[in-house]
């Protein structure tokens, strides 16, 4: 669960990014976070990942309080979520399999757990046949599915996707969001940041809209 309570965020440069942001995303929900550039979407993701702390207010994520938690607990908070980036961020010299396995290896998973889990996840995103390919040998849509597989492999309760369809064409974008839908149906919370209004319209999920750092609309939940 994610909860923002009266969150204000001002960067050291003096820029105000968020003003009194309140919303709650319950376990198992699918939420689109929309808004123009500079609205504060990335700041919200950074707060959820505990890369930054709010200037005022509270951010609660999967039982961790962003402001009160100890720094050494940050990795354990991040293990409860998977993040998907707009620019895929795949390691170019690693195969598709190794890119996914990497996320398990660096969190201390055993070799046998990796050998069991990675093929299952690659099958889930429809990339079993590309396991031995390098990122440069697959399409943009496939690269994003590898990104999603990497986010899912540690079995997180929540997926945070930052403009996951921003670098791929419309048809592939629909396929990707369908995949997110499928993952959400299996019980994983999804918070997707996007600019793409068509995608948002096509998939009937809760939409939180941000403008100038404020929540201007929320189609569901109990935003105050």
């Amino acid at each position: 669960m994610i909860e923002f309570k009266g969150v204000h965020l001002t960067y050291n440069s003096g820029t105000t990014a968020l003003v009194d942001v309140n919303f709650r995303v319950m376990d198992g929900e699918f939420v689109f976070l929309v808004g123009p550039s500079g609205a504060g979407k990335s700041s919200i993701i950074k707060l959820i990942m505990r890369e930054i702390v709010p200037s005022a207010g509270e951010v609660l994520v999967n039982g961790y309080n962003n402001k009160k938690m100890k720094k050494r607990h940050i990795p354990y908070l991040r293990r409860t979520m998977g993040i998907v980036f707009q620019d895929f961020r795949l390691i170019p010299h690693m195969t598709v399999y190794d890119n996914v396995a990497f996320a398990m290896r660096v969190t201390g998973a055993s070799g046998s757990a990796i050998r069991k889990r990675v093929p299952y996840i690659l099958d889930l995103v429809g990339l079993s046949h590309k396991a031995r390919s390098l990122p440069c040998q697959i399409s943009g849509g496939e690269q994003q599915r590898v990104g999603l597989a990497r986010a899912l492999v540690n079995n997180p309760s929540m997926i945070i996707a930052d403009e996951p369809t921003g670098n791929i064409d419309a048809q592939l974008a629909t396929d990707i969001v369908d995949l997110f839908d499928e993952i959400n149906r299996r019980g994983t919370t999804v918070l997707m940041v996007t600019h793409d209004t068509k995608l948002v319209d096509r998939h009937k999920h809760r939409v939180i809209e941000l403008r100038n750092g404020c929540v201007v609309s929320d189609t569901g939940g109990d935003a105050r």
Partner: peptide, 15 residues
């Protein structure tokens, strides 16, 4: 890039 991914998936600083 690898360090960045390690951090995003929850690798500890010691790791």
């Amino acid at each position: 890039l690898e360090i960045n991914i390690m951090k995003s998936v929850g690798a500890t600083n010691n790791f």
